[in-house]
Nucleic acid binder design. Structure first.
Lengths: 224, 224
DNA sequence: ATAATACTCGAACATGCGTTCTGCGTCAAG
DNA sequence: CTTGACGCAGAACGCATGTTCGAGTATTAT
């Protein structure tokens, strides 16, 4: 018996480690007895004792009375993964598909998993993904097959310098550009500095469908 | 009663969806009774009945006799997230950092989380990540700040058409290019078709540090 | 020395929860 | 019509699993 009542004891650490390992291995949390077995604690009450402490320390969360109702606290309750619905494809000559009004439900097949650690912690609903079709957005450093994660937003919330997806009805054109509001309308600046910006006059309509927050490219055996 | 014994029925789908949602929300699987409640099945035996079917179909895996012993079959039991060590930065004028010999251990702070669903299911060790510094790799559609996920590999396993990170000692140059072995040496082709390839002669040394499998760009308020 | 606190154990208890059995209605094939 | 497979309900059963209690042993403070 060395330590007393300060910080994490040896058993605390062992329990935490086991909780994590078990969850990852089995897909669900262990029972109190399983924890005891693994950490050489022969009594379920002792395990319960430590579990209580860990809960007080904020290390874990417990659902009382229900079996296997333990989970690590730091992993967000919704899982570390965020499922983002893929609304469709983004093509140069077609309007941008926007997710259906029912934003919360979507099929598992048409979604991508993104680690929460990548995304700003605030509103993570409003996100949707598009698959890029064609090479028309190379100037935005986005290629055919890339997946762009977008945050649903209108023209009002868009700030200068944001990269946005815009639909120009009068030109039948969809494009990804840096957005700048100017006196005489809007300037849509390609990411590639050597290319000329698109100037959209005040009278021309322009629909901002979303702000690009992330681009993902899977490089498979891309034979040129 | 419409359907008979073919494919996924309405209840199968509902159960599957609930399993997934519950697991993501609570961090552990539901009980049979909870499933029944959610899917409007009033008897636990019926839920069990469907669970058995789903198991036969290979949609779920069950651990008999233990509570909450159900999990989706497709989600990898080792966790859906893969932690990939960030070995360092990749700069045009410097050699590529390679992960230390101890490939398996690394700090949490210097790693990125990638959903397994993005990566080829086979060998997922050997992966490491680099942060791109500078704009020298724009021709590879990779910009300053991007994160490239690489698979550690040598020249032997590299196939034509792979995008690789190479270090050219004689030129003090690091670059990302599509790789082609040719009679007279190697051709390193930029992703941008308008740019000229680099030809590396047989006598010149060339070190392939890895194959690019994924590129991730987080678009924050990038003010041009 | 005595008391208080932290830690441990084992066992009993109460319920959570998977399993199994009986029975009922529907529908298609013989 | 009978038979059997299928979908369903409800209840009983029994093991799995969280909770609680009484008690014992250190370690530290008074």
């Amino acid at each position: 018996m060395v330590r007393k009542s300060k910080g994490l004891g040896d058993r605390h650490k062992k329990i935490l480690a086991f909780l994590k390992a078990y969850q990852e291995r089995e897909g669900y949390p262990p029972t109190i007895r399983e924890i005891g077995e693994e950490t050489d604690i022969s009594s379920t009450s002792v395990v319960n004792y430590y579990l209580d402490q860990l809960e007080k320390m904020g290390k874990i969360e417990r659902q009382r009375k229900i079996s296997r109702g333990v989970r690590l606290a730091n992993v967000s309750p919704l899982g570390e993964m965020l499922k983002i619905p893929v609304a469709g494809r983004i093509v140069a000559g077609e309007p941008i598909p926007v997710p259906s009004s029912d934003f919360s439900y979507f099929d598992a097949e048409t979604s991508v998993d993104i680690a929460r650690s990548f995304l700003p912690s605030d509103k993570n609903d409003e996100l949707f993904a598009l698959e890029v079709e064609g090479e028309s957005m190379i100037d935005a450093m986005v290629n055919d097959g890339d997946i762009v994660i977008m945050k649903s937003t209108g023209a009002e919330q868009t700030k200068n310098g944001d990269m946005v997806a815009v639909w120009l009805p009068e030109r039948d054109e969809t494009t990804l550009k840096y957005f700048f509001k100017e006196k005489e309308g809007y300037r849509l600046q390609p990411a590639n500095p050597t290319m000329e910006p698109i100037i959209v006059g005040k009278e021309e309509s322009l629909e901002i469908k979303g702000k690009v927050v992330m681009v993902i490219r899977q490089v498979q055996k891309t034979v040129i």
